[in-house]
Nucleic acid binder design. Structure first.
Length: 328
DNA sequence: GAACAGGATTACG
DNA sequence: CGTAATCCTGTTC
């Protein structure tokens, strides 16, 4: 299979979004339990680097591999492949390790389509479902922290909308939308249909709609379960002034999303490398509302940390490599 | 040529 | 006030 990994997203209108890494190809995947699919982009990356330790994958997901193997670009129909018995250590391991719901499909042999038990399949799907929702909520929570916005798009001002657009655009390397969504509040945006998104941006309106839809569903789900997760999400969004070193730490915490821009070389020692200096600077600029931010200026701010004892150059100085003095 | 070091000044909360 | 942003000169990789 040419697909190395999948990222699974869940959306409120009842669709699962599966994102194969087929060199920028957008892939539809219809999931039997849900009605509608979204198109999402995928950026090619060295999965071995970004996902060094995959959780063992529930066997039920291997059916995706069969689907993918049959059509490497477009998938519109579910096959009748059924699920072999699930390894029960799979999902708990995923949860415990706090891994992203990334499904590695490399080197897995296609599973034979036998008539399996439906409850087993449903139970397995439900667990995947729960896992996916948890991961989406976590992703959104950190995005809120990094952007300093609230999780619910309906509460966004037009400034927040612009921030979210810029961020999403850069995070997923979408074509620039420009001023297509200027002066729209979050509630305006939330009420727009996918077609209206496409009218504003024929290039990536559908993708942006899909991303926003995930945020909307997350907000909706939070209303229904307004307990544990909400508390930390709110607290993470209220802190206004974020320091550069905190920002970098947050990026480093999410290797799946930002690992191509910044990653640990040695997490224990706090040594990290900025792989894409322009990208990190851009994200920092979005966060601080400094459109003119670049790595030259960002690195100057990092250098200010030398005398403060927050960040230093590692003992063996390397380009674009820094070290937290007090690793946590 | 980009990353690095660091002084000086200004902006912003 | 402190933290960055900006701008700069010079050095190093």
């Amino acid at each position: 299979s040419i697909f190395h990994s999948l990222k699974v997203y869940f959306s409120a209108n009842g669709s699962l979004v599966l994102v194969p890494d087929s060199d920028g190809h957008h892939t539809y995947m219809e999931f039997p339990a849900f009605s509608q699919s979204h198109i999402m982009p995928w950026i090619a990356e060295e999965d071995a680097k970004v996902f060094p330790s995959h959780p063992s994958v529930p066997e039920c997901c291997s059916r995706f591999d069969m689907l993918l193997a049959e059509d490497n670009a477009w998938l519109v129909q579910r096959t009748e492949a059924t699920t072999p018995p699930m390894r029960d250590e799979g999902l708990p391991h995923c949860k415990e390790a706090g891994q992203c719901p990334v499904i590695d499909s490399r080197g897995r042999e296609p599973c034979p389509g036998t008539n399996g038990q439906v409850d087993m399949e449903d139970r397995c799907l439900e667990q995947v479902h729960t896992l996916v929702v948890e991961e989406v909520l976590k992703d959104i929570e950190t995005a809120c922290k990094l952007l300093n916005i609230t999780p619910d798009p309906a509460e966004w001002s037009s400034g927040h909308v612009q921030k979210w657009l810029l961020w999403t655009e850069h995070l997923y390397r979408l074509p620039h939308v420009g001023r297509a969504f200027q002066d729209l509040s979050g509630s305006d945006l939330s009420m727009m249909t996918e077609d209206e998104f496409r009218l504003r941006s024929s290039q990536c309106g559908d993708v942006l709609y899909a991303h926003l839809d995930i945020w909307k569903s997350a907000a909706w789900m939070k209303e229904r379960w307004p307990d544990e997760l909400c508390a930390e999400a709110d607290s993470s969004c209220t802190g206004q002034p974020i320091h550069l070193w905190q920002f970098l730490r947050e990026l480093l915490l999410k290797p799946h999303n930002y690992g191509r821009s910044i990653r640990w070389l040695n997490k224990e020692k706090g040594i990290f490398k900025i792989e894409d200096s322009a990208h990190v600077a851009k994200l920092w600029g979005i966060r601080k509302n400094r459109p003119a931010m670049n790595y030259d200026k960002l690195s100057r701010s990092i250098r200010q940390y030398y005398k403060k004892g927050i960040i230093k150059k590692p003992d063996v100085s390397q380009r674009l490599v820094y070290q937290f003095v007090h690793p946590v």
